[in-house]
Amino acid sequence: MKTRSTSVRLARVSALGLAAAILAAGACHGDPGQDAPAKTPAAAPARQVIACYFHRTVRCPTCRRISAYIEESLQAGFAKEMKDDRVVWKMVDFQDPKNQKLVEAYKIQGPTLVLMDVRKGKVIDWKPVPKVWSLVPDKEAFVKYVQKEVRTLLEKK
């Protein structure tokens, strides 16, 4: 048990550094022509939810559709929060060697949406949201699901 809690603490400290890396680096896009990443504010909000989509360098149509739907879901459900950086949208090419630490920290094995609960610049919790792949055929259900997951994290005490 002592060993386990030490590992958890180490993982959290690593995640803290990684959250800072994500925020500082901005989005690392695999596709050209994407919107510019949001500016990092001088003082980050007390709490944030980062929706980070990890993708391959070469992307299939389904993968491209998923990221488009996620972005739509966030903009439709959290326009205000995105404006003041309480909800942040990021995309990371997990096959890019410079992102390998992120890949290891978040155990990325394939294109995945990861939601991060960030308090005062530290990632205190994160969860993969792979169900987006099952919900792609039903856009309405997809949007509801992503918005619900993000809202749950935003409202989490």
Binding site: T62, Q109, G110, T112, P130, V132, W133, S134, P137
Partner: peptide, 11 residues
């Protein structure tokens, strides 16, 4: 089998 692709993608 709607969950198949998700399980493949997540390895």
């Amino acid at each position: 089998l709607g969950d198949g692709f998700m399980l493949i993608v997540t390895g």
